[in-house]
């Protein structure tokens, strides 16, 4: 319950970096927000085509990826809890599991994309311009949004790898874990975006 005006404290740097991370998350949310605006408008205009196109996506793969991300979101939160409890070993294991889940997500995505690309459904392909407008826009948006999301997954993985090493060599410790906390926040952001992407892309039958 420490009030705001009481801001000359030892740990104010950690608070600043956490606030900074939240602000950065806001910009990321609005970055995807722009795409969600585009999505909602085209879905409004090409309702039928979007429904048909989404049948091309496998709900199972989407669901597996959702579960992988939710699970990894929990483990990274647990890593932070472990760090706060001065349990370095558990923290390392939890970050490791998170990274593994991220990998599962990416491998899954790779096969999903690969399947589409095999069928010639990718931006710039010869087939795409032959589709009608609604289908074309759906798949363009699909690749654009999931691609940008996958890029964020990769960035998050890099960040968590750095955290993993820093926990290992002790530069993140129970008295100073702002980096791990911010890494975890970033990872939750990736999860947050997927929570909206999944129903909007996969579940409009």
């Amino acid at each position: 319950m420490s009030e705001k005006h009481n801001h000359v404290e030892e740990h104010r740097d950690d608070e600043a970096s956490k606030l900074g991370m939240w602000l950065f998350i806001f910009t990321e949310l609005l970055l995807f927000g722009g795409l969600f605006i585009v999505y909602s408008i085209f879905r409004h205009e090409y309702y039928q085509a979007f429904r048909e196109s989404s049948l091309e996506l496998s709900v199972t793969i989407g669901a597996i990826n959702t579960i992988a991300l939710l699970f990894s979101s929990m483990t990274v939160a647990m890593a932070l809890t472990a760090m706060q409890k001065n349990d370095k070993k558990t923290a390392l294991i939890m970050i490791g599991i998170t990274l593994l889940m991220a990998l599962v997500f990416l491998v899954n995505k790779y096969f999903e994309w690969g399947h589409k690309i095999e069928h010639g459904l990718y931006p710039g392909s010869a087939l795409m311009p032959l589709l009608d407008r609604g289908h074309l826009l759906y798949f363009s948006l699909y690749f654009f949004m999931t691609g940008l999301h996958a890029f964020h997954i990769i960035v998050g993985m890099v960040l968590l790898f750095i955290c993993l090493f820093k926990v290992k060599n002790g530069s993140i410790h129970p008295e100073k874990y702002a980096l791990l906390e911010n890494g975890a926040l970033y990872w939750h952001l990736v999860d947050l975006i997927w929570i909206f992407l999944f129903p909007l892309m996969y579940l409009i039958s």
Binding site: L23, T27, L30, G34, P123, G124, M128, F144
Partner: peptide, 23 residues
């Protein structure tokens, strides 16, 4: 902080449209 990301993604879409013919 809040407005710039939207033009950022718009410009990326514009670039993608030029490169890949996304419509």
């Amino acid at each position: 902080l809040l407005a710039t990301p939207i033009v950022g993604i718009t410009l990326v879409m514009l670039i993608a449209e030029r490169l890949f013919g996304i419509g």
